[in-house]
Amino acid sequence: MFDVFFDYRGLFIEGLLVTLQLNAIVVVLSVAGGALIGVARHYGGKIVRVVLGIPVDILRSIPLLVVLIWVFFASPMVFGTRYIDPFVAAVIGLSLTQGAYISEIVRGGLASVRSTQTRAGLALGMTRTQVVTRVVAPQALIRMLPPIGSQVAIGIKDSTLASVIAVPELFRQSQIVIGDSMQPFVVLTTLMVFYFVLVMIVVRLIDMLYTRVAARGAS
């Protein structure tokens, strides 16, 4: 019954590698980008907040599938390149969407640290920058951990959507195998288990990390 995985191992291994690569790149880009935008929106004053809020809100209002399709099919026409590599399109689409959500988490985390903490820091003679890096950011970072963890989990699950623009990730390869082998049950069920385990590992790791530091985030 599980022969199918051996028979098509080449496709599956490629798919697995592409899925892992895609997610690794997206996590790095979206966390870095989201942090940058979140910090800028929190500390940047009204104009920065409103201007950067526009792309964030657009990305949060449109389905990821539509973002991916637009980036893959339509954006080359805007930039006159005619073609974009599906993997690159998937990285862009996923990172933009994930980054938008993460920027909101970062902004909310910074805002959740009570202003009395800032005052306490200033009262000790710290500069504004020191207050941010020594007092506010560490607490905010700990509080952001759980929601960022959930968002990363969402990103892993959503990476299956890259199959729609023919990125040879795990789900796409599986569909090819199903078409060829006519064994949807085994393949799709195993895939379910795979994603379940992957997501659980990520969630549990972040949980463990969080419980170790949680007390330091509650002022």
Binding site: K157, T160, L161, F171, I178, L188, M192, Y195, F196, V203
Partner: peptide, 23 residues
């Protein structure tokens, strides 16, 4: 609940589409 929450909805859609009729 955990299974439905921790697996991709696209996969769930295909599972119901292909596997449910077979089962």
């Amino acid at each position: 609940v955990e299974v439905w929450r921790a697996t991709p909805v696209l996969l769930q859609l295909f599972w119901v589409f292909y596997v449910l009729p077979a089962l």
